[in-house]
Simulated scan of single mutants.
Amino acid sequence: MNTLPKINIESPVVTQGSILFPAYKKIKSDSLLLAQQIENIEVTEENVKQSKKLLAAVNKEVKNLESERILIKKEMLEPYNEFEKQVKEIVSIVKTADEMVRQQVTQMEEEEREDKKLVLKRMFEKRIRMYDFKTYFTFDDFLENRYLNKSLSINKIESEMVEWLTKIETELKAIETMPHADEIIAEYKETKDLAVSAQIVSDRHKAQELIKEAKNDIKDDQLHTKITFTLFDEKDVKLVEMFMQQNKIKFEKVEK
């Protein structure tokens, strides 16, 4: 890559502007005196027209002075406005070029991430073929966004991949020894967490047992139209409520 030329920033030459206003003190003094006199005027029906003419004349002079101020400000700002325009033009040129390069860098980095992803996918598919659970999990189950970062080497990721596959194999073997193994495996495919998966299935069956007991109590006493059973665990209460609602069973909750 060729060395980029440098932009040598030389400070612009600034000539300090000045505005001479020698009549300032006299005009200010006259204005104070005029303002005092205006404040002391007592407007009556006899002098109202004269008062209006006086105010109109005063306001005309003030307006002329204000117009002069605006004109001078515009003239003083003209050099700065031209300088600002030139600077913005230069900044725009550099920013446009900078954005083009940034887009190319981003595109290149995305291509590198995709290439790395392909390498990892081939590695994963090659390794998972040696495991019995090869049809349970895919590369997407293993992939984490950080694996595609340039800072993480292929060797490091391969080491974590082996650990991940070994963990899956060990936990699946443990699941096979548990009650309701098929259900736990189904949950495990989603959670990748043995403890969480086993707890979900256990809670589900516990709720089903509670409902079954409640139904048996109803069958034992057909004369009663209402059955009351007591749950001591708040978690059991929520599980029973959920089962009742899902199966559209009418029930009444009485809290004591």
Rank of each mutant, 00 (worst) to 15 (best):
L4I: 12
I7Q: 08
N8Y: 00
E10D: 14
S11V: 02
G17V: 00
S18G: 07
L20R: 08
F21A: 04
P22K: 05
Y24D: 14
K26V: 10
I27H: 07
D30G: 11
L34S: 06
A35L: 11
Q37Y: 07
E42N: 12
E45C: 03
N47D: 04
S51Q: 07
L54K: 02
A56H: 01
N59E: 13
E61V: 05
K63I: 07
L65M: 05
E68I: 09
R69Q: 11
K73E: 13
K73G: 05
L77R: 09
N81H: 10
E82F: 02
E82W: 00
E84I: 09
Q86I: 13
V87A: 05
V91D: 11
I93W: 01
K95M: 08
T96L: 11
A97S: 11
Q103C: 00
M108P: 01
E109P: 01
E110W: 04
K117M: 13
V119R: 05
E125T: 02
F133V: 09
Y136L: 15
F137S: 03
D140R: 11
D140Y: 00
D141V: 01
D141K: 02
F142G: 02
R146E: 11
R146C: 04
L148M: 13
K150Q: 09
K150T: 07
S153Q: 12
N155F: 04
K156L: 10
S159Y: 05
S159M: 05
V162C: 00
W164K: 06
T166R: 03
I168C: 02
T170K: 10
T170A: 12
T170E: 11
L172G: 06
K173G: 05
I175A: 04
E176F: 01
M178P: 01
P179M: 09
A181V: 01
D182N: 15
D182I: 09
E183I: 02
Y188F: 15
E190T: 15
K192W: 05
D193Y: 04
S197W: 02
Q199P: 00
I200H: 04
I200R: 05
V201E: 02
S202R: 11
H205M: 07
H205T: 04
K206S: 13
Q208W: 01
Q208M: 14
Q208E: 13
Q208P: 06
E213A: 08
E213K: 12
A214I: 12
N216V: 12
K219C: 03
T225F: 09
K226W: 08
F232E: 14
K235H: 15
L239S: 08
V240G: 03
F243E: 14
M244T: 02
Q245C: 03
N247R: 05
I249K: 00
K250L: 08
K250S: 10
F251Q: 09
